[in-house]
């Protein structure tokens, strides 16, 4: 499974307008990520990690080059097709959780299933299953402002995982967490990766996250400078 390619990036360039000129955030990236990988984009701020994650997540488009995710060429997708790809196949985990503050834990996790039009019974089963994976059973009726940072991130993971996506993109998922919570979260994601065979792609510069990765892709100035696989 790990060998079948889920992300293929060729000569990716991403530029942003800046003042009268342009800023090149990604400068000729070539990369492939296989199914079931637990990989991370590692680099300092401004190295292009988040930009690359956004393009892979079809939230942004390449300026040139090609990005193919699950056989969909990101640059050629319409807004509707890109939304469909995200809805069906991608899960997102953000640094600041991005939970819906006025929804309960249950409703937050249920949201992707509502978009996918699952029936009420199936939705309930899947949400409760995700809540159980993440150990949130006693927080089911709580709202995000009532939760700790670690609990919020667990809800965000549950929301990303509930539909069992092929690929989860996690942008600095432990940046707002203490060490203990970070390890808990990472262990959880590692277990989900192993058990559900979900591909995880992180953007991080956190040593704690890096220590869990089985593949480390180092970026600097919009380029891949090193690509290491950890053999355990």
């Amino acid at each position: 499974m790990e060998n079948s390619t889920i992300i293929r990036i060729e000569k990716l360039v991403k530029k942003f307008p800046m003042g009268k000129g342009e800023f090149t955030a990604l400068n000729g990236i070539d990369l492939t990520v296989g199914r079931g990988e637990f990989a991370g984009l590692i680099g300092p701020s401004g190295s292009g990690k988040t930009t690359l994650l956004n393009v892979v997540g079809s939230l942004d488009v390449p300026s040139s080059g090609s990005v193919t995710v699950l056989d969909h060429s990101i640059g050629e997708l319409s807004a509707k097709e890109a939304a469909l790809l995200r809805k069906q196949n991608l899960g997102f985990i953000f640094q600041s959780y991005n939970l819906f503050a006025v929804h309960t834990v249950y409703e937050n996790i249920e949201f992707p299933l509502l978009l996918l039009k699952y029936g009420p019974a199936e939705r309930k089963k899947m949400v409760l299953e995700a809540i159980e994976w993440l150990g949130l059973t006693d927080k089911i009726r709580s709202k995000p402002p009532q939760l700790s940072g670690g609990e919020c991130q667990r809800v965000a993971i549950a929301r990303a995982m509930v539909k069992k996506p092929s690929l989860v993109l996690a942008d600095e998922p432990t940046a707002n967490l203490d060490a203990a919570n970070s390890h808990n979260i990472l262990k959880t994601m590692e277990v989900l990766n192993r058990e559900l065979k979900t591909t995880f792609l992180f953007a991080t510069h956190d040593e704690k996250v890096i220590s869990y990765l089985r593949r480390k892709i180092f970026l600097a100035d919009g380029k891949v400078i090193n690509d290491e696989r950890v053999t355990s």
Binding site: G57, L59, A79, K80, A83, L84, R86, K87, Q88, F92, F94, S96, N98, F100, A101, F111, P112, L115, L116, R159
Partner: peptide
């Protein structure tokens, strides 16, 4: 804004 971005990330189009 973050909520709007999240809706889009989770599979909504901007029009939706």
């Amino acid at each position: 804004q973050k909520e709007i971005g999240t809706y889009i990330a989770l599979g909504y189009t901007r029009k939706e």
